[in-house]
Design a binder for these strands. Structure first.
Length: 564
RNA sequence: UGACCCGUGGUGUAAUUGGCAACACGUCUGGUUUUGGUCCAGAAGAGUUCAAGUUCGAGCCUUGACGGGUCAACCA
C-alpha cells in the first residue's frame, strides 16, 4: 500500500499545478490559516456516488495530501426527507474502495445541529435574523427577479425579543410545517438572489436518520455548510461551479461567526461530464426507478459501484481523475479517455486467458481421438513474474465464428478454406472442410494440424498471418458473458433542451451471451477478478457468478486495429 | 433587460505568470510482434471566439462586443 501511495505521489508531482493548487500556494505564501491545508468531501447521503464524485474525492484528498494536510468525510445531512443510512454506508464503501482514508475524521452536518441552533439564536439577538410567517409563494414573490430588487417582508422589523420567542416555539414543535421559517436579514435589493434574506431554517416534522425526532426544524444548506467548515477547521472548501453565486452568502455567515483570522474559503471547479452518459443524481435515480437499468450498480451506470462491478479498478479511476484535470470550464470528456485508463491499467496486470464468445466447432481430423495435451501458456506477456499455466488441447475445439470467413476479403487474414493459421500457444492448423447443415449454415470446420509446430512455431520457418484463441471442447467452462455498450446513443444526452434524454437510450446497451466457453483456469478465480480474454478485451467475474454458472462482464474491449 | 463565471486542435488540459502554443486521449501512416492488443517510430490537426488598446513583444494585461453557463427550491 505504501508503495502504491509513493507512486501516486510521484505521478502527482509531475502534473502541472491546477488553479486550486495555485490558490493554495498563494494562500500559504500569505501565511493564511497558520499554514494549514484542510479539505473535506461533503456528500449528501441521498444517492450513490458516481464518477463525478470520484473526481471530487481525488481532488479533495489528493490536494490535501499534496500539501501535507488532512481531509474530512462529512455527510451533509440537513434534509431528512431525502437521506438514508443505506447511502451513508455505500458512500463510505466507495471512498475507501477508491483508496482514500478519513481516519477518525468522520462528521455529519447533523453533529452540529445544536451549535447551529445556538448560532441562529445569536444572530436573532443581533437583529440579523427573523421569523417569517408569510406563505412560501409570498416570500418568493417578494424576492423579486434577478433584474429587479425585492421588497421587505413585513416580519423583517419584528423585535429580537419576539423573534427569540418565536424561534424557540419553532424548535419546540408549536408550529406546523410551512407555518414559518427563519430568515437571515441581509439585503432584499442585492443583485445576488441568494443575499435577499435567505432561509436559514424550515420546519420539517420528519424523523432524521441520525437525530430521529429530536428536531423538527432543519438548517438549510447555505446556513449549515460554511459553519460546519468553520468548526472543522476546513481551509479550502472545494465545490462545484453551481455554488459560485452562493459564495457571498457562505462568506457572510462565516464572517458573523469567526473571531480570528482563520476563515474557510470556498473554491469552485466544473463538474465532470462524460460523453454518452449522464451524471446527475436525479437522472441516474430516474434510470434506476424506471428500470432502464438493473440498479445503482448496473455495470452500465457511471456510478462508482457500477464501474466497480463492470471491472474498473481504483487505480484506473484515480488515473482518469488526474487526466481530466481541474478547471472552471464546462465541458464534456470523451469516454474514450476513461476506457484508455482501464485498458492501460489492466494491460499491465490482468491475467490472460482464452475464451470464445461466439463459438464454432473445429475438428482437428488428424489429431488422435481422446488425446489431451497440456499446453504452456503465458499468464501475462507484460509481466513475466506472473508465470505460466497449462491449457488443455484436444481434437475438438471451439474458435470464434468471427475468425473464420468462407470467402475472405482482402484485409481478412484469419482462417478460411485452405489457409493456415496458428492456434495460440499450440499448433498451426489448416482448414480442409467446411461442414454445413441443410440450411447452408456453417456448423463445423475440419482442419488438420502440423505436429511439427507444437508451441506455435514451425521449424521450417513458415509464417502465418493470424493467431487465433481457442478452447478445448471437453474441458471448456460454459459461461454467460454480458457485453455492455454506451447507455445513450448521443454524446450529450442531457444537453438537448427540446428532447428528453430517454429518446437517446441505446437499445443495445446490454447483450447477454449464454453460449460462451472459457478455459478451465478461470474456475479458481475470485469474484471481481480481472482477466484479459486474449484478442477480445478485459472481463471480470460478476457477483452473479456461481461455480456452476459462471458470469463474466466485459469491462472494455481491446483496441481493434482491424478495419473492414 | 441584473450579478457572477467560462471561451486554447475533434475532446480534455498545459504554456514556469508578457517571450518559438506543449501534453494526453482520439484519428491516420509505418515497424516489431505467437493477442489485428502492447511496444516503437512518425503524421495530420489550433495560431488561442472577435475587435480595439497597452507593449519591442499578448493565449496571458485593459476595454468592448459575441457565444455559452449559473442564479429567482421551505433541495444540496
Amino acid at each position: 500500500m505504501a508503495e502504491i501511495d509513493n507512486i501516486s505521489i510521484d505521478q502527482d508531482e509531475k502534473l502541472p499545478r491546477n488553479f486550486i493548487q495555485q490558490q493554495i500556494v498563494d494562500d500559504l505564501a500569505e501565511g493564511k490559516n497558520g499554514g494549514r491545508v484542510h479539505t473535506r468531501f461533503p456528500p449528501e447521503p441521498n444517492g450513490y456516488l458516481h464518477i463525478g464524485h470520484a473526481k471530487s474525492i481525488c481532488l479533495n484528498f489528493g490536494t490535501a495530501k499534496k500539501f501535507g494536510g488532512l481531509t474530512n468525510l462529512r455527510f451533509d445531512d440537513t434534509n431528512p426527507t431525502k437521506e438514508d443510512t443505506e447511502y451513508v454506508d455505500s458512500i463510505m464503501e466507495d471512498v475507501r474502495w477508491l483508496g482514500f482514508d478519513w481516519d477518525d475524521r468522520l462528521f455529519y452536518a447533523s453533529d452540529y445541529f445544536d451549535k447551529l441552533y445556538e448560532f441562529a439564536v445569536t444572530l436573532i439577538k443581533e437583529g440579523k435574523a427573523y421569523v417569517d410567517f408569510q406563505p412560501q409563494e409570498t416570500i418568493s414573490e417578494q424576492k423579486g427577479v434577478p433584474t429587479r430588487p425585492g421588497t421587505d417582508s413585513p416580519y423583517r422589523t419584528t423585535s429580537p425579543e419576539e423573534n427569540l420567542e418565536l424561534f424557540a416555539k419553532m424548535k419546540s414543535g408549536f408550529f406546523n410545517e410551512g407555518d414559518c421559517v427563519l430568515r437571515a436579514k441581509i439585503d432584499m435589493s442585492s443583485p445576488n438572489m441568494h443575499m435577499r434574506d435567505p432561509l436559514m431554517y424550515r420546519i420539517l416534522k420528519q424523523p432524521h436518520h441520525r437525530t430521529d425526532d429530536k428536531w423538527c426544524i432543519y438548517p438549510m444548506y447555505d446556513y449549515a455548510h460554511g459553519q460546519c467548515d468553520y468548526w472543522e477547521g476546513i481551509t479550502h472548501s472545494i465545490c462545484t461551479l453551481e455554488f459560485e453565486v452562493h459564495r457571498p452568502l457562505y462568506d457572510w455567515f462565516v464572517d458573523q461567526l469567526r473571531d480570528s483570522d482563520y476563515r474557510p474559503r470556498q473554491i469552485e471547479f466544473s463538474r465532470l461530464n462524460i460523453s454518452y452518459t449522464v451524471m446527475s443524481k436525479r437522472r441516474l435515480l430516474q434510470l434506476v426507478k424506471e428500470n432502464y437499468v438493473k440498479g445503482w450498480d448496473d455495470p452500465r451506470m457511471p456510478t462508482i459501484c457500477g464501474l466497480r462491478r463492470r471491472g474498473y479498478t481504483p487505480e484506473s479511476m484515480r488515473a482518469f481523475s488526474d487526466m481530466v484535470g481541474i478547471t472552471k470550464v464546462d465541458g464534456v470528456t470523451d469516454v474514450a479517455v476513461l476506457e484508455y485508463c482501464i485498458r492501460e491499467d489492466l494491460n499491465k496486470r490482468a491475467q490472460r486467458v482464452m475464451g470464445v464468445l461466439d463459438p464454432i466447432k473445429v475438428i482437428v481430423t488428424n489429431y488422435p481421438e481422446g488425446q489431451v495435451e497440456e499446453i504452456d501458456a503465458v499468464n501475462n506477456p507484460e509481466d513475466e513474474s506472473m508465470g505460466k499455466r497449462k491449457v488443455p488441447f484436444s481434437r475438438e475445439l471451439y474458435i470464434e465464428q468471427e475468425d473464420f470467413m468462407e470467402n475472405p476479403t482482402n484485409k481478412f487474414y484469419r482462417l478460411s478454406p485452405g489457409r493456415e493459421v496458428r492456434l495460440r500457444y499450440s499448433y498451426f492448423i489448416k482448414c480442409t472442410d467446411v461442414v454445413k447443415n441443410e440450411q447452408g449454415k456453417i456448423v463445423e470446420l475440419h482442419c488438420t494440424y502440423d505436429p511439427e509446430t507444437k508451441g506455435g512455431n514451425s521449424p521450417d520457418g513458415r509464417k502465418v498471418k493470424a493467431t487465433l484463441h481457442w478452447v478445448a471442447v471437453a474441458q471448456a467452462v460454459k459461461a454467460e458473458v454480458r457485453l455492455y455498450d454506451r447507455l445513450f446513443t448521443d454524446p450529450d444526452p442531457a444537453g438537448h433542451k427540446d428532447k428528453d434524454l430517454l429518446e437517446f437510450l441505446n437499445p443495445d446497451s446490454l447483450k447477454v451471451l449464454t453460449e460462451c466457453y472459457v478455459e478451465p483456469f478461470v474456475k479458481s478465480a475470485k469474484p471481481l477478478s480481472n482477466f484479459q480474454f486474449e484478442r477480445l478485451g478485459y472481463f471480470n467475474i460478476d457477483p452473479d457468478s456461481t461455480p456452476d454458472q459462471m458470469v463474466f462482464n466485459r469491462t472494455v474491449s481491446l483496441k481493434d486495429g482491424y478495419k473492414k
